[in-house]
Computed example of a mutant assay.
Amino acid sequence: MKLVHTLDELREITDAWHNAGEVIGVTPTMGALHEGHLSLVRAAKAGSDRVITTIFVNPTQFNNADDLDKYPRTLDSDMAQLAPFGVDVIYAPGVDQMYPDGFSTTISISGVSEGLCGAKRPGHFDGVATIVAKLFLQTSADRAFFGEKDFQQLQVVKRLAADLNIPVEITGCPTVREADGLALSSRNVRLTENGRKIAPALYAAMQAAGVAIKQGTPVHEALSEAERDILAAGFAEVEYLELRAENGLAPLGTHSEPARLLAAAWLDGVRLIDNIAV
């Protein structure tokens, strides 16, 4: 496993791999790795000859400077977690490597980026699309692996690759959860002890709503009841709780096609997101 900080060094490695006919898989991350990230690494190892894990806390996708400052930087422990998996390269560029002086290009994707997380985080998905495009091009990846927990982000990335003809195959990997159902997230460590006990109520309410919708309960009724349950459990705010088409993320008023129930809610000043298939 090699730690690389510069694009020139990375390209020297990937050029040799491609010249040897090897398939390169990439798992883009912002570090602070947990089992969810490691599940992506496992998938990449199973589906690629070579694996690159990128670690870069991308400033352009944060709307709140305080949130950016608080985001954990844990490169040493991240490397220790990756070591047993046989990752070939950890690419951990600095901000100056990704956004050098004079950088002035932004990629903006409409449609799938609108509403949900895009509604109250203006520019967030522009930052995601821009950095992911750069990482695809810098790593020369043939395959890329993303978690389904950030389902809207996954759709943005798929749209990006399709629209810009970037020759990378995008694979979505299932959400990894704690035993009590809480979706793994680097933000979970910021919950208080009591907040951690409350947090699984989000997934539980979503599951109940999903069952009700599939059994014929009107969508608006099922979602209203779920929101009441989430707030009653101790969450401060439900930012959104919506049923969307799995393909394209169009809002759904009825359960007429494969769908995703997506939510964002605030607890202990921490924004938790989740989604389930319905």
Rank of each mutant, 00 (worst) to 15 (best):
4 V>Y: 11
264 A>E: 10
204 A>K: 02
41 V>G: 04
41 V>L: 04
180 D>W: 06
54 T>S: 15
212 A>I: 04
50 R>A: 09
68 L>G: 02
27 T>S: 13
41 V>Y: 05
106 T>V: 15
29 T>F: 07
192 T>R: 02
54 T>Q: 04
49 D>G: 12
27 T>R: 05
38 L>R: 01
100 P>T: 12
148 E>S: 07
252 L>W: 11
184 L>S: 13
233 A>I: 00
158 K>A: 12
110 S>P: 03
218 P>Y: 02
146 F>N: 06
82 L>R: 00
135 L>I: 15
8 D>C: 05
130 T>K: 10
67 D>W: 14
9 E>L: 08
164 L>N: 07
230 I>K: 00
200 P>M: 01
40 L>Q: 05
223 L>Y: 09
143 R>E: 14
168 V>K: 04
76 D>I: 03
162 A>F: 03
57 V>M: 07
98 M>G: 03
54 T>E: 03
11 R>H: 14
89 V>M: 02
62 F>A: 07
59 P>L: 11
77 S>F: 03
233 A>T: 00
248 G>S: 10
33 L>I: 12
246 E>Q: 15
15 D>W: 06
96 D>A: 12
238 V>M: 00
47 G>K: 06
54 T>M: 03
62 F>R: 06
14 T>L: 04
108 S>E: 14
116 L>S: 09
46 A>P: 02
184 L>V: 14
35 E>A: 15
197 K>A: 00
106 T>P: 01
258 P>L: 07
261 L>P: 00
235 F>W: 01
254 T>R: 11
164 L>H: 07
230 I>G: 00
37 H>R: 08
103 F>H: 14
246 E>F: 07
112 V>T: 14
275 N>A: 06
157 V>W: 11
126 D>V: 09
